[in-house]
C-alpha cells in the first residue's frame, strides 16, 4: 500500500506539487495524467525517495520514505524519466550490476538477469553498450532494471515513450501481467494508455490533484459521452435530428460529412435517433455511440476550457 499525505514540493519560488494526498492498494494500476510540467515526475521522484518533499509524507508498505528510505526502496522498482542507464556499460553488464545491487548472487543472479532479458526481448543487444541502443531498446533496458526483483511497487515514468506501436503493446501487456497483487503507477500523456491499462486515473495540473477516479468515470465527463455519430451517403435532415429530445447540439465533421449528436448531460440518445431513422427510412451506413473522448476531457480539465 502507498499512503501519500499532504505532499508538497517547491523549488525556490515555484510550487511544483501542492498538497497531494492519495492512497493506493495492491492490484491497482494508477495513471498519472497531466500536461508537461504539471508535477507528475516531481511526485514520482518524491515517491521513490529521490527528492525530499518540502512538506507531507510518503509511506510505501508502511515504510516512511524519508525515515526508512532503504527499506522502502527495496520494495520499489523505478523507471526514471528518460530511462537513464550507464551508457558505457553493455546491457548484460548493466543488468548484472543491478542484480548484484538487488542482492542476487551466483546462479540466482544469472537466472534473474536471463529472465528479464527474455521478458523484454533484449537477447539481440546484450553485448552492445547502452549508448549505442535505439530509444526503444534503451527504454526496455530501463524497464528490465525496474522489474528484475519483482517489486511490490512499480513506478514507471513514461514507460512507453519512444516505443513503436508494437513495443507499446508489449510493454502494456508486461505491465498488465505484473500488475496482479502489486501496485503500478505510470505517468503518461498518451491518453489511450490510460483506458488500455489503468484502473484509476489521477489527473494533475499545476501541481494539484484535480481528478481521482476510474477511466470510465473520467470518460463520462466528456461532452461526447453517449454522443451518437451517424454517417450517411445521403444528406440527412439536420433540423429533425437537432429537434430530438435530449440533443444539445449537432456537429458536422467536415472531413467525412458525418454528424455527431451531443447529448444534454445525462441524456441517452441512441433509442430516439434510431427511432427517427426507422421512421424516415434513412439509409445510414454507420452509427456509433461514443463512450467519451479523453483528449477533450483532458484539455477542458487541465486548461479550464469551457465545454
Amino acid at each position: 500500500m502507498i499512503e501519500v499525505s499532504k505532499l508538497s514540493k517547491h523549488f525556490s519560488e515555484h510550487l511544483a506539487v501542492n498538497n497531494l494526498s492519495f492512497t493506493v492498494q495492491p492490484g491497482e494500476v494508477i495513471g498519472f495524467l497531466g500536461p508537461n510540467g504539471a508535477g507528475k515526475s516531481t511526485t514520482m521522484k518524491m515517491l521513490t525517495g529521490f527528492l525530499a518533499p518540502s512538506a507531507g509524507s510518503v509511506k510505501i508498505h508502511g515504510f516512511d520514505i524519508a525515515k526508512q528510505r532503504i527499506r522502502a526502496q527495496r520494495v520499489l522498482g523505478y523507471l526514471p524519466e528518460g530511462a537513464p542507464c550507464y551508457g558505457e556499460m553493455t546491457v548484460l553488464d548493466f543488468l548484472l550490476f543491478i542484480g548484484k545491487v538487488r542482492g542476487y548472487r551466483g546462479k540466482e543472479l544469472q537466472e534473474r538477469v536471463k529472465r528479464v532479458i527474455d521478458l523484454l526481448e533484449l537477447g539481440r543487444v546484450i553485448g552492445q553498450s547502452i549508448d549505442t541502443l535505439s530509444k526503444g531498446f534503451n527504454r526496455r533496458v530501463g524497464l528490465a532494471q525496474a522489474v528484475m526483483h519483482e517489486p511490490k511497487v512499480l513506478i514507471l515514468d513514461e514507460p512507453t515513450d519512444g516505443l513503436d506501436p508494437n513495443q507499446k503493446h508489449q510493454v502494456r501487456q508486461l505491465i498488465k501481467a505484473l500488475a496482479k497483487d502489486r501496485i503500478v503507477i505510470i505517468s503518461t500523456h498518451i491518453l489511450e494508455e490510460v483506458s488500455a491499462l489503468c484502473t484509476r486515473v489521477l489527473l494533475i495540473a499545476h501541481g494539484e490533484l484535480i481528478v481521482d477516479e476510474t477511466p470510465h468515470q473520467l470518460l463520462q465527463r466528456s461532452k461526447y459521452h453517449q454522443a451518437v455519430t451517424l454517417y450517411s451517403e445521403n444528406a440527412l435532415d439536420q433540423a429533425a435530428l437537432k429537434a430530438l429530445p435530449g440533443v444539445q447540439s449537432l456537429e458536422e465533421n467536415s472531413r467525412d460529412g458525418s454528424l455527431t449528436l451531443i447529448p444534454e448531460p445525462g441524456a441517452v440518445l441512441f433509442p430516439v435517433v434510431n427511432a427517427l431513422i426507422q421512421q424516415r427510412g434513412w439509409q445510414v451506413q454507420e452509427i456509433a455511440v461514443e463512450s467519451g473522448r479523453l483528449d477533450e476531457v483532458f484539455r477542458r480539465l487541465t486548461r479550464g476550457e469551457s465545454a
Binding site: G49, R69, Q73, Y78, P84, R102, Q145
Partner: peptide, 8 residues
C-alpha cells in the same frame, strides 16, 4: 536518480 533509488 537510478543510483539514489536502488536502496543503497
Amino acid at each position: 536518480e537510478l543510483l539514489m533509488t536502488l536502496a543503497i
